[in-house]
């Protein structure tokens, strides 16, 4: 029902279609291109469409660009989703605690949130990865490290408004533990507005990951779009396609996520008007 409404908005339809296509690409990459996408499989600098075996050509070492782009989709989506998931979990926990307990707890947690918001997200990620060392896991943590602040703020605001409502008072009256109230009664109700941030968080996580690997701080063992763009940059004059192809993939992915987010917002507001 609500999925239908989502797909009926133009943004939702385009975004949903693109995301489905991306998911297909990401899932089928190991089937279509088994083996290491970073392996050398052909002559170097084969231009796109020149050889049917390498539709997007090969790079300076003779690696298959299409395989890289498809495996890169996996990396981007996995890191984007994982970082957003971590950020939303941590953020809603922090926001819920701050909103529920108020007082000193709220003050301290909000100061910390503010401090994290003041540090440029990309610099924080850069510093963290360069200290801890690049890997899928550290990149996810590095991105989540600054992305949790927005969900925390939204969750806190929601909790503050929900705290006053009847069912919370009822739970308090029957003597439920404050933490149980927080995570069983309040958080589930505060979650929808927090989740509406998801698309923006996933998109910015994907962009930060790409920028990190562009600067050489991505996981060196997997194919990433940022690394591919960065390698193509050195031969921009002669083989621009090496940077262009993964860049377009990156842009389409982020756009698909924004579209899906817009579609969801529109579908939700349509439902509010309808009801």
């Amino acid at each position: 029902m609500s999925v239908l409404r989502f797909l009926r908005t133009p943004e939702g339809a385009v975004g949903g279609f693109l995301l489905a296509a991306l998911a297909f690409v990401a899932l089928s990459a190991p089937v279509l291109f088994p083996g290491d996408p970073l392996a050398i499989v052909g002559p170097a600098y084969l231009h796109p469409f020149a050889n049917p075996a390498f539709p997007l050509g090969t790079d300076s070492l003779g690696r298959n660009v299409l395989a890289g782009v498809m495996h890169g989709a996996r990396t981007s989506l996995v890191i984007g989703l994982a970082a957003a998931f971590a950020a939303i979990v941590v953020g809603s926990a922090v926001g819920t605690l701050a909103g529920l307990f108020g007082g000193v707890v709220d003050e301290v947690l909000m100061r910390i949130t503010e401090a994290f918001q003041t540090v440029p997200a990309f610099l924080l990620a850069l510093a963290f990865v360069s200290v801890v060392g690049p890997s899928m896991g550290t990149v996810v943590v590095a991105i989540a490290l600054s992305a949790w602040t927005a969900p925390a703020r939204v969750a806190r605001a929601e909790v503050l408004s929900i705290r006053q409502r009847d069912y919370v008072a009822a739970a308090r009256a029957v003597g439920m533990h404050p933490l149980a109230i927080a995570f069983r009664e309040v958080l589930p109700n505060a979650l929808p507005p927090v989740l509406s941030l998801a698309s923006v968080i996933v998109a910015s996580a994907i962009l930060i990951e790409a920028a990190l690997s562009f600067l050489g701080l991505g996981d060196p063992n997997v194919a990433t779009w940022g690394t591919m763009i960065s390698e193509g940059r050195n031969v921009l004059r002669s083989a621009a396609y090496l940077s262009i192809a993964p860049g377009i993939a990156l842009m389409v992915t982020v756009l698909a996520i924004y579209f899906a987010g817009e579609g969801a917002v529109e579908a939700a507001s349509a439902r509010r008007i309808a009801s």
Binding site: L236, G247, L255, F259
Partner: peptide, 17 residues
Amino acid sequence: LVLYAVPGFWLGLVLAL
């Protein structure tokens, strides 16, 4: 919205190109 989805560093490369 489309512009907002463009990665800045890649846009930089394309502009430079």
